[in-house]
């Protein structure tokens, strides 16, 4: 009898221990998944109406399809504006002639305050770039940093195998009808393919 009680007690203790252990693991897992990251959204105004493709293309030096290889830096613009740099492999040019591997500087990223709170700072309609995924970029070359600044959100569009062909056709069409703001004409060092077509 004593032996049966001992076996029963051992089994019961084991079940209770495993249950508590699992609860602990689940709790940690849920906490890590639902880590409360605050999002700080930025509302920008651009040289062009960024919702119109022909204006985004017209005010970009380069429009191209590229695959994100890896994150290579987190150089912020200022204390409140993080930026994240990615190495990307150019797959196809729609406007301009880029090749091989270049750096994309995304105006978004994580910011940690003095108390250790993490905030994701990003523009409206923008998602952080993900290594392994392919995007259509519309960008200006930043000669000070030797990287390319895409239009936040509107110039960093996720491309899937299903949408790739349609997207290339749309942006090629937008390139033919491109509209460039006169203000970009004043940046003498900028190289806009096929000159300028102003909106006014």
């Amino acid at each position: 009898m004593k032996r049966k009680v001992l076996i029963f007690s051992t089994l019961l203790s084991s079940i209770i221990f495993i249950t508590f252990l699992n609860q602990g693991i689940d709790k940690d897992s849920v906490q890590s998944k639902e880590q409360n990251i605050e999002i700080s959204e930025i509302y920008g105004d651009f040289v062009m109406d960024a919702t119109k493709k022909e204006e985004v293309v017209g005010n970009s030096e380069n429009v191209f399809i590229a695959k994100v290889i890896k994150q290579v830096g987190t150089q912020p613009l200022n204390e409140h504006m993080p930026r994240t740099q990615f190495e990307v492999e150019v797959k196809r040019n729609i406007k301009g002639k880029l090749k091989d591997f270049i750096i994309i500087n995304q105006s978004a990223g994580f910011m940690t305050d003095s108390e250790g709170n993490v905030t994701l700072v990003k523009f409206e309609n923008q998602e952080l770039l993900e290594p392994g995924k392919t995007y259509l970029f519309a960008s200006l070359y930043d000669s000070n940093n030797n990287w390319h600044n895409p239009v936040p959100g509107y110039g960093e569009v996720l491309v899937s195998d299903d949408t790739k062909k349609q997207m290339i056709d749309e942006y090629k069409k937008a390139f033919k009808a491109q509209k460039t703001s006169k203000i970009m004409e004043k940046h003498k060092d900028k190289d806009f393919v096929n000159g300028y077509i102003d909106e006014e």
């Binding site: 700080s40 959204e41 930025i42 509302y43 920008g44 105004d45 651009f46 040289v47 062009m48 960024a50 005010n59 970009s60 613009l77 200022n78 409140h80 504006m81 105006s107 700072v121 523009f123 200006l140 070359y141 930043d142 000669s143 000070n144 600044n149 239009v151 936040p152 110039g155 970009m184």
Partner: peptide, 22 residues
């Protein structure tokens, strides 16, 4: 209000922050 310098198509932005917005 502050100035930034970036070779991009950005003219300006509004950022909501805890404390003073920018």
């Amino acid at each position: 209000f502050k100035d930034i310098l970036e070779q991009s198509t950005l003219l300006g932005y509004y950022q909501k922050l805890t404390g003073s917005d920018i």
